[in-house]
Computed example of a mutant assay.
Amino acid sequence: MLKILLDGAVMMAYLACALFFLRFHKQSKDRLFALFALAFTLMGLNNLFGLLVGPSLDEERRHYLYVVRLFAYLLILGAIWDKNRAGRSAG
């Protein structure tokens, strides 16, 4: 029961971070903030999906849940790389 509560709190934190970055994207129109918002939304939805489907999956198939999280982390790394690449060409 406590695990479900903590997973819900983590999901809420991920979605709050997504809204935070989305607000900065709307103010600055910077693609970095939009990609961060998308990545945190994916992590929040992954947490929700893990809560809903996770207990019904056996241990051998549980690793599929982490593919979405891996994609979100790669999205963050790609956003940082894109921001640094764009900064060099402007200077």
Rank of each mutant, 00 (worst) to 15 (best):
V68R: 04
L70F: 15
L57E: 03
L74M: 13
K3P: 12
K26V: 10
R85P: 02
Y14V: 00
I80R: 02
R85H: 05
M12Y: 09
L52G: 04
E60H: 13
D7M: 15
L74Q: 01
L57M: 15
M11C: 13
L52I: 09
K83T: 10
H25S: 05
L38E: 06
A86G: 00
A72R: 01
A37E: 03
L35C: 03
F33N: 10
K29N: 15
I4L: 13
L38I: 11
R85L: 05
H25T: 00
A90N: 06
I4N: 09
L6S: 03
L42T: 05
L42C: 12
H63G: 14
F36E: 02
I76A: 07
N46P: 00
G87K: 15
L42D: 08
V53F: 14
S28V: 08
D30A: 09
L19P: 06
Q27D: 02
L65A: 04
S28E: 08
L45A: 13
G87M: 13
D82N: 07
F20K: 07
L2I: 13
L35Q: 11
R61H: 14
A86V: 11
F33D: 06
E60D: 13
L65T: 00
L77P: 00
G44Y: 02
L35T: 05
A34D: 06
Y73C: 12
L57H: 04
D82M: 08
R23C: 07
G78V: 01
G54Y: 05
L22W: 14
A72P: 05
N46M: 03
A39H: 05
L22R: 10
K29Q: 11
I80T: 10
G44D: 03
K26P: 00
S89H: 11
L74S: 03
L77R: 03
